[in-house]
Amino acid sequence: MSGHPIQWAALLLCVLGALLRVPGVRRGRGRMIFAALVLMAIAVALSLPPIYLPVDGVLGGWNAANLVIRLSLYAVVVLLGLRMAAAFGAERVRTLIVGPAGITVLLVTVAATLILFALSDLPVSSTGLAEYAGQPTVEQYADIGRLYPGYVSACLVVPAATGSLRSGSRPAHRIACFLLAAGFFSVLCFAVLELFQGLDLGVFEVVLPFGAILLVVSGLTLIWFSRRRGRPRQRNPLA
């Protein structure tokens, strides 16, 4: 088993989405989203055994690569969250992410992640720490890793969904907002559902998180295309 097709699709889309933005980044445009896409590509790549195992080998073979995934995803979530909040003019969401409460949640999450990782016994490289699924600290480590993205996604679902319902917006933006809202909702569902011990999500174990990545990156890429093609509406408003 070398990864589900949806994981490869997500990786491909992240890489493509990032490559599209390279010229803009060199002119100093959209750096945060570019960084988020690159980090997302790294995280997705490391979820695939053929990439995870060699990389973790280079890092020493004690599953440090999994820690890289977690921390990258936290950074992705913060970067995307901030840009989305600004894009949707959602001042409250910004406060929830980088206000005192948001920063506290982030610091606690990072600290808990590092501590739980240190407490776990992970002697041999294992993609997604699948071989250590029984360890309580590993379970909690995984739960925490889903909760922070779930928290930020929960903040973003409503502004994104509102954007998709706005009749005055460009159709491309409404579609993009819908994709983003659907993606955030998947992240939220995944974080909440995984909390229930013994609930077998089956194929959704993979489809929910990686589908979310596909949705979010598609939305971002659609907006990128829309900006490239977009011109101000030319009709004389006083005519």
Partner: peptide, 19 residues
């Protein structure tokens, strides 16, 4: 016009931040 301006500003905010 005010509504059109608001729509345009929203589109622009999306482009500037996510595009």
């Amino acid at each position: 016009l005010r509504k059109a301006d608001a729509d345009e500003n929203r589109d622009r905010a999306i482009w500037d931040n996510l595009g």
